[in-house]
């Protein structure tokens, strides 16, 4: 038993270390891209400009994160509230409909939502934000339904027995116990949004996808690699950060 716990905590430390390593590599590439210019110049001798320098990578990362964070916050607020509504007595009737909507909605490719939003709403950041937020709701809503559902009935009865009111039961028991499942939904949503935000660069939205798109249309493979490595590392780093967060959350729950 002790050995198992020890191994588990060692794995946790290892994963934390991996997160820091990926994050460090990402930041190093973002801020130290200038030092890599000779490397790309020697890899692609035929390119006149082997390093993407229309925008600084740091500004691209900030713009990318801004879109993802704003749309994910909106998606979380809407998704969790809709999920809570569908699990109350007043909203239970709507649950099958919401489930149909969520499962059919998820067969839509996220790119499709983006592609339809842009000509409808216009060019710029707004359609990307709206499309990402809309699509991002689905996994969070699904996770909230599953998470609240999985709260054991005895826990609810105990909370009622303790005299907690509706809101205290919702926040103190149901959402608190469902939190890891909801967080997993948020993680899925955020990772999808990071990828879809990159694709928004096809219509000129400033994100880490821009070097990829500029590189693809200008036959500059160096740009393509620079953008792709950064987007990939960003997604992996955020995913690992969510994993750490989930682990902390479960540990915090078990010590309470």
């Amino acid at each position: 038993m002790i050995a198992l716990t020890l191994r588990k905590s060692m794995r946790a430390v290892e994963q934390d270390r991996l997160l820091w390593a990926v994050l460090a590599l990402f930041l190093l590439l973002v801020f130290g891209a200038g030092w890599l210019k000779p490397l790309f110049a020697s890899l692609f001798p035929q390119l006149q400009r082997p390093l993407y320098d229309h925008d600084s990578f740091a500004s691209l990362v900030l713009a990318h994160l801004q879109i993802v964070v704003l749309s994910s916050i909106a998606a979380t607020v809407v998704g969790v509230s809709a999920g809570v509504f569908a699990t109350r007595a007043a909203g239970r009737e709507f649950r099958p409909l919401i489930e149909t909507l969520v499962s059919a909605g998820q067969t839509f490719p996220p790119v499709a939502v983006l592609a339809v939003a842009i000509p409808l709403i216009g060019f710029g950041v707004a359609p990307a934000l709206i499309a990402l937020a809309l699509y991002g709701v689905l996994p969070i809503l699904q996770a909230t339904l599953a998470g609240v559902e999985s709260v054991p009935a005895p826990a609810l009865e105990a909370a009622e027995g303790l005299g907690l009111n509706r809101w205290q039961r919702l926040f103190g028991v149901e959402l608190a116990l469902a939190a890891p499942v909801i967080l997993a939904g948020v993680r899925t949503s955020v990772i999808i949004n990071i990828g879809t935000a990159a694709i928004a660069s096809t219509v000129g939205v400033k994100t880490l996808g821009l070097p990829i798109i500029v590189g693809l249309s200008g036959f500059n493979t160096a740009y393509v690699i620079q953008g792709a490595v950064l987007v990939g590392l960003l997604a992996v780093a955020v995913d690992l950060a969510f994993e750490t967060l989930q682990r902390r959350l479960v540990r915090w729950q078990s010590t309470r």
Partner: peptide, 20 residues
Amino acid sequence: NVVQTIPSIALFALLLAPLA
């Protein structure tokens, strides 16, 4: 899992250079 995490546009792009 890591592959699944990498956005599709990035993975497509990353395979471009080595295959070329």
